[in-house]
Write a protein that binds this DNA or RNA. Structure first.
Lengths: 110, 110
DNA sequence: ATAGTATATCGCAAATGTACGATTAATATT
DNA sequence: AATATTAATCGTACATTTGCGATATACTAT
C-alpha cells in the first residue's frame, strides 16, 4: 500500500474488517477454521490429512490466521493446540454483520 | 495455486466464500461497498473524492469487486452506475453467517 | 468534426502471497 | 545421550496484487 504521500488513514474498523477478510480469502484457511470448530475447537496437524498441502504450507496458513488474530496456538508438547480466538472471532462476526446489515438498508434500486 | 498433482477440489461453497472474502480483503474495497450502499445504492466515480487513490487504481478495485460478483456495473453514459449485486450479496451474507454460526456451536473450550 | 467527460485498459515496478523441500527447534521416549 | 515426533522457519520459485501514469475508448455537447 503506497497511498501517495497523502496521510490518509482508513478507519480502524475498515482496516480490521479487511484484515479478517483477507485471512478468510483462501479456501485452505476456511477449511482450517471449519475444522477447528468441528473438532470441538482446539486442534492441530491432522490438517495434513484434510488439506492437499505440504506441512510447511499449512504452517504458513496457520501463521496467517494467527497474525490476523482469528486463531490462537497453545504449546502442548510435542503438539500445538490451535483454537479459534473467541474474542476476535466475535469481533469479526460483528463486523461482517454490520457490513451486510448496513448495505441492506438501501439495497434494491437499479 | 498448485496443489501438487493431486486432483483435490475444495467444495464450491468454500471456494465461493474464499472468493468473496478475498474481494473484501482490502480497505479500499470495503469503503467502496459501504459507499455504494450509503448513496442509496447505484453510484460511481466520486470515489475519487473518497479514496486516496488514482482513478486507474480505483477502476481496478471496481473490477475486482465485479469479478468477485459483489457489484454490477451498468453503462449510463457518460458515467457508469455501479450497484451491489443483490443476489450474490445475499449469498455472501449467508455464507459468512453459516461460517460464524457453525463455528460458534462448539466454541469456548481451551 | 472537435473537444470534453468518465472510465477502462496497458505497461510497468514493487510488494505480497502461495507453495515446496530442507533444515532447525523443542520436547518425549527409549 | 540418541531417536522420534511435531511443528516452525528458511530459502527459493513463481504468481498475484497493488499502485501509478499514460493511453485508449465511448459517448455528449458544441
Amino acid at each position: 500500500m503506497k497511498r501517495t504521500g497523502s496521510n490518509f488513514k482508513y478507519s480502524k474498523e475498515t482496516e480490521e474488517l479487511a484484515r479478517f477478510s483477507k485471512a478468510l480469502g483462501h479456501p485452505a484457511r476456511i477449511i482450517i477454521l471449519k475444522h477447528l470448530s468441528n473438532q470441538s475447537c482446539c486442534y492441530t496437524g491432522e490438517l495434513l490429512d484434510v488439506l492437499p498441502l505440504a506441512q510447511s504450507t499449512i504452517s504458513q496458513h496457520l501463521k496467517e490466521l494467527k497474525d490476523a488474530g482469528l486463531i490462537d496456538g497453545e504449546v502442548s508438547p510435542p503438539k500445538i493446540k490451535y483454537c479459534i480466538h473467541t474474542e476476535n472471532w466475535m469481533k469479526a462476526q460483528k463486523l461482517f454483520d454490520t457490513l451486510f446489515k448496513e448495505d441492506f438498508k438501501k439495497i434494491k434500486c437499479c
